[in-house]
Amino acid sequence: MTHPALEVRDIHRSFGALKVLDGIDLAIRPGERHAIIGPNGAGKSTFMNILSGTLKPTGGTVHFSGEDVTGRSPAAIARRGIGRAFQIINVFPALSVEENVESAVACHQRVTWHIWRSLDRIESVRSRTRDILEMLKLWSRKDVPAGMLAYGEQRRLEIALCLGISPSLLLLDEPCAGLNAEDSSAATELLRSVSENKTLIMVEHDMDVVFNLADRVTVLHQGKVLITGTPEEVRSSAAVQAAYLGGHE
């Protein structure tokens, strides 16, 4: 029996007296595209932080492909093949686009301690970097410092960095935040191709993206799972509509 790509059991997280996550259970199949939505304050960011290792849960477990990764550090989780992209652009601003992705690839290829080699001469790193940049249509901008890219390009770089570590599970935090409708649909297609043969979990507020891309959707509300189901099931659920007070966003 294959393990779920991600299995979360009874996750709790409190900050002092404030209970942010109150028993989350979730199992995500390998290759699935899964969206997590919910009103503000539902606990989505906290949940993502627990999955990527920034926060430790105060209770419960996280299993990644059958392996217990509860409470591991972000670096350890990344090395196991979980890649995270952030809502607020979180790249290396003074480095060029190519150098940014190179850094991710180099870590994944475990050449960090090869101190007898110069990084820009390692062919395997360079070719993989090129592949990723071309897939995300950033190769033409490879020498531009990351801090000087247009916003849409920076969003793509966020994802490129995430891909650099060849993850099998992608955790994306509002990948379409701040994009207009046209960029959004382009981004959706990009996300679709980028997540071929990978498991994708994303937090999103843009319902068009969610309904176009996700296989299943989980709605979080006040730290609990309200419903997990297909986009249609979620859309037609009365409980979800009540939680959102009659509208989304």
Binding site: S52, S73, P74, A75, A78, R79, R84, N90, V91, F92, P93, A94, L95, E99, E102, S103, A104, A106, C107, H108, V111, T112, W113, H114, I115, W116, R117, S118, L119, D120, I122, L161, G164, I165
Partner: peptide
Amino acid sequence: YLRTPLGRATILLRENESRAAFLGYDT
């Protein structure tokens, strides 16, 4: 040192330490 992968990792720490960790670097 700065041209080696380890040197690059050092520069990454200055640029964005938390992101370097998210890439898998043991900061």
